[in-house]
């Protein structure tokens, strides 16, 4: 949709989306991307699954023997593939982990090309939000609850559920927005490299 030869914001956005896809696709052809992707997917996904029951896993990890520790970590890792998980719980963790891994993979490539630090900050925000959204807000064991309880006293428990869901959703939105930005940056780099050749 254009008026007077100028592109509308929707056209610009769609164009940017196409460019971001092209940029991300070019990054996915590199080994660097997949190195960062796999590492982030495993570490971040396992961490999110460990936080699924609030701080319970960490309490157990602190007192378990070596075998026990390995079992807890392995179960959290296997949970990434839906093993022993409720479908909806798994889906949320998988989507957030996949987006974060893609983002870190893309940033890994962008960092090499143009030292993009703003995107690195975005990935930190995504990780922080996703982690804060973990746990069971209904039971008061979500990680956000102690913070809210400190600010709002016991009233914090009452809003933990809503806030926990909102920040999980926010983590997905921030990740998508950051991917859009990094993808565009990567596409710019790709064109620059072509010109240099």
């Amino acid at each position: 949709m254009t008026s007077g030869g100028k592109k509308s914001w929707l056209d610009k956005w769609l164009e940017g989306l196409g460019l971001a896809f092209t940029g991300l696709k070019s990054a996915m052809r590199t080994r660097r991307f997949w190195g960062f992707f796999v590492l982030t997917f495993i570490i971040f996904g396992t961490l999110l699954n460990l936080l699924g029951g609030g701080t319970a896993s960490f309490s157990l990890l602190a007192v378990s023997g070596f075998g026990g520790k390995m079992k807890i970590i392995l179960d959290a890792f296997l949970g990434l593939f839906g093993i022993g998980q409720f479908f909806l719980d798994w889906l949320v963790v998988f989507v957030v982990t996949f987006l974060q891994a893609t983002l870190i993979g893309a940033i890994g490539v962008a960092w090499k090309r143009n030292k993009d630090q703003e995107s690195l900050q975005s990935s930190g925000i995504v990780a922080g939000l996703a982690i804060l959204g973990s746990g069971c807000p209904t039971c008061g064991t979500a990680l956000i609850t102690p913070i809210l309880a400190t600010i709002f006293s016991t009233g914090g428990y009452a809003i933990a559920g809503v806030i926990s869901r909102v920040i999980t959703l926010l983590s997905v939105i921030v990740a998508l927005f950051a991917l859009y930005k990094v993808g565009n940056g990567l596409n710019g780099c790709r064109l620059n490299l072509k010109e240099k050749k």
């Binding site: 699924g52 609030g54 319970a56 309490s59 064991t141």
Partner: peptide, 20 residues
């Protein structure tokens, strides 16, 4: 802080994973 909450001797823990 939340439920469930366990005080097993000196081991104290809050929460339990629903997949366990």
């Amino acid at each position: 802080n939340g439920m469930p909450y366990f005080v097993f001797n000196k081991f104290v823990s809050s929460g339990f994973d629903n997949n366990w």
